[in-house]
Design a protein around this nucleic acid. Structure first.
Lengths: 198, 198
DNA sequence: TACCAGACTTGATTCAGGTCAAGGTGATGG
DNA sequence: CCATCACCTTGACCTGAATCAAGTCTGGTA
């Protein structure tokens, strides 16, 4: 199943019939307030699971970032699978708990970190998605999402995200080759900022 | 296992050997930043599970609110149980996913709601813990946690929480009989505020 | 009954981040 | 090669919530 160009494929609150695995590309998950305010609750990429909740309706909307490919598993089929392979159930729980731990960190970010700390955390978080993250050397990052998405993920406005990236650049903590291509010049310094230890 | 009076029984980052079920009283879960800023990521009460993550260390600290009783299950023992009763694993996943959905809503609260909306959401959330929540009539609530905890849960300061509760009182949306005992006079109105629809 | 300590409320002031308003930039197509 | 559009950056100003600073209330104790 292929979803192109920012197309939405899960509608928040819609009856949840399926379970998804992202097989390629990236996806953003979000919730909306009635007046349009948006919180991006996570980004998912190859190998990530969506819609783990066996509940009746989706707690979030989902949309491709660029274009993405997914596998869709109807809940009913899933159930048959887990009955045949009980270890799958364990795997799913692990996945859910891993996500749970990530969310706790994100709640701390949203509830207690300053804008500077949030952006620093975001950059470091992106590093951990790389093959072998090594904070002791400069790291090249590719940010596939527009500023709007970064802002909605961090609970900030695009202006603030932009300003803070500019500030980091001025402080020689990062260099911005292009909008999507950023190099962390002092990853450890940024990591320190991210933890609120300036 | 009994934990008294605000005693801490899970240390954030400590090796995770056990899994807990709250059997009585209440418990708060939180994460800390190095400088002491605290985010309460949830409250748990009778029947709730803690430490679902089968990971190696706890992603949060936990502390009794008042005094609480818990059942402690070593991970090893749990594994033996789930092998004998595969449906338990399913139950645990469900629990984790339910929590996941709650956390998405909380992220939206922390990232995108105003202080007024947060406090309103908190009050409504407390209602849903009651036996039969019915928003069409006044509802008496007991808030067992101090203002500090409410503030750290909502990503606000105690002063702001206090001010907003006072404002709600002045607007005749609630009445405050005592610090812990609040009556929602117009629950539906408060629910509207909670959703950001003023 | 009066005292005390801890928790809460209220008020004055400050400031981080939001809002509003121009520009800038770079990819696409004519 | 230039126009266009979408996205990003920058600046000026404003405001919601934080901070700082007194009070006030409550329940426990002597």
């Amino acid at each position: 199943m292929t979803v192109s160009d920012g197309r939405s494929f899960i509608e928040e609150g819609a009856p949840a019939h399926d379970f998804f695995v992202v097989t390629g590309g990236r996806v953003k998950l979000f919730t909306l307030l009635p007046d349009g305010r948006r919180q991006i609750t996570g980004f998912a990429e190859g190998g990530d699971f969506l819609g783990l909740a066996a509940s009746t309706s989706y707690a979030f909307g989902a949309e491709a970032l660029g274009s993405a490919t997914l596998c869709r598993f109807p809940h009913a089929g899933m159930q048959r699978l887990t009955e045949r392979f009980p270890s799958l159930e364990h795997r799913l729980r692990e996945e859910a708990s891993r996500e749970l731990a990530l969310m706790q960190a994100r709640m701390t970010l949203l509830g207690r970190k300053t804008a500077r700390e949030r952006v620093a955390t975001f950059l470091i978080e992106r590093c951990t998605h790389l093959d072998r993250p090594d904070l002791s050397h400069p790291i090249e990052l590719d940010l596939p999402m527009p500023r709007t998405d970064i802002a909605d993920y961090l609970g900030l406005t695009i202006e603030t995200v932009s300003r803070i990236l500019s500030a980091f650049k001025k402080e020689k903590l990062i260099s911005i080759r292009s909008i999507t291509h950023i190099t962390l010049l002092m990853p450890e310094r940024i990591s320190t900022i991210a933890e609120g230890m300036e």
